[in-house]
Design a protein around this nucleic acid. Structure first.
Lengths: 200, 200
DNA sequence: GCGCCGATGGGCAGAACTACCTACGGAACC
DNA sequence: GGTTCCGTAGGTAGTTCTGCCCATCGGCGC
């Protein structure tokens, strides 16, 4: 098992020399490193964690960096990716950036620069993880609501009063207030203000 | 004068041929185009509008595309920028993307692709303009608040009740309620919920 | 000094919200 | 047929918010 707060760097590259350089570099800080010779091998082993990042070659046989990025983006918790590239191709870089690449670094790279980018990426990963977990609990609560409750909630978040909502939906004020009660209980909040914050 | 809803494309390139190609392309849609032979000339003429974008060469004498981007980013309303580049340099592209470049297009480019990107950029510009104006009016209202009112507002947005705020600040409930009144009048809102939405 | 404004405090009335309780009809499920 | 859930609706009580009135005090500018 990995220590709770410890970060992990995944070094994905078909070139063992590059992996080794990355591994030795990461070993200088208190962060674990795991090497993978292919995107496929990495995907088989990958599971989301609070503090992790990829250092990944853009050009690889079979699944390349861009394809790996797309596959990871389709998962619930894509980790930040730092791409290594020896081939200066603007269109690929722009494409990867558009798909949320954390950073790019051209080979040959400065160890100091890469280390700095890794640390930023791990910080980012932690923040993302926390944000994602908050969003997930919020969505789990939201899923408990019935359609009618969701409808009332929408109007509440829009800033409408119970009276206005009752008129809009053709209900009695009492009914709207009941829905509000249930919403607040299910969402575990104590006021309309907290409701709004939960719903962004 | 320019018609209200009409977009403007600024073609900034030291090569007159490129400018002409862009101009002819843009002329096929209902969008005005203005040509500039240098970033300096463009900067002298530029003023923010609701629906505009730049098509700009990355490599130019004097002020290059990246420097122009930085100067525009320092203004209140930077327009979306589409960079033209004949030199495939990853680091520059990544840098420009990081600074919010709207898109990149490699020379030689397909007219159809550029036109599509221009239209996206103009849409984006419109949305940005609307968002910016909303933010500006919100900030103008917020500026009317006294320090104490801002403090109370912060707690209200945090979801605290008047009673809780009065205890936290060592004030009477009445005073807190007065502050709330003034805040809502100055911000022209009718409920705490709208207050929260105004403050993000 | 005088006037204005911000911060503080209070009163009061009405609206709105929150938190409990009850109830009934319909649909879905076992 | 009984149970459970949802939507509907009402009651009551207490709290909170909103709006409009008032006053005092201290600072700042004219």
């Amino acid at each position: 098992m990995t220590a709770p707060g410890k970060g992990i760097v995944y070094a994905v590259d078909d070139d063992p020399l590059v992996r080794e350089v990355v591994a030795k570099l990461v070993a200088t800080i208190d962060v674990e490193v795991r090497e993978f010779a292919s995107a496929r091998a990495f995907l088989a082993a990958f599971e989301p964690r609070p503090c992790e990042c990829l250092v990944c070659d853009l050009r690889m046989p079979d699944i390349d960096g861009l394809a790996l990025q797309l596959q990871l983006n389709a998962t619930a918790a894509p980790p930040p990716m730092i791409f290594l590239t020896g081939f200066a191709e603007v269109s690929i870089a722009v494409e990867a950036m558009r798909h949320g690449a954390f950073d790019f670094i051209e080979k040959p790279f400065s160890p100091h620069v890469l280390l700095h980018k890794i640390q930023s990426a791990l910080e980012y990963s932690k923040a993302q993880f926390a944000a994602r977990r908050a969003r997930e609990t919020a969505e789990a609560r939201l899923a408990l609501l019935t359609p009618k409750e969701r409808c009332v909630l929408q109007h509440v978040v829009d800033g409408k009063s119970s009276r206005e909502i009752s008129e809009l939906l053709g209900l009695s004020i009492r009914t709207v207030e009941h829905h509000r009660d249930h919403i607040m209980q299910k969402l575990r909040v104590n006021s309309a203000v907290e409701l709004v914050k939960l719903c962004l």
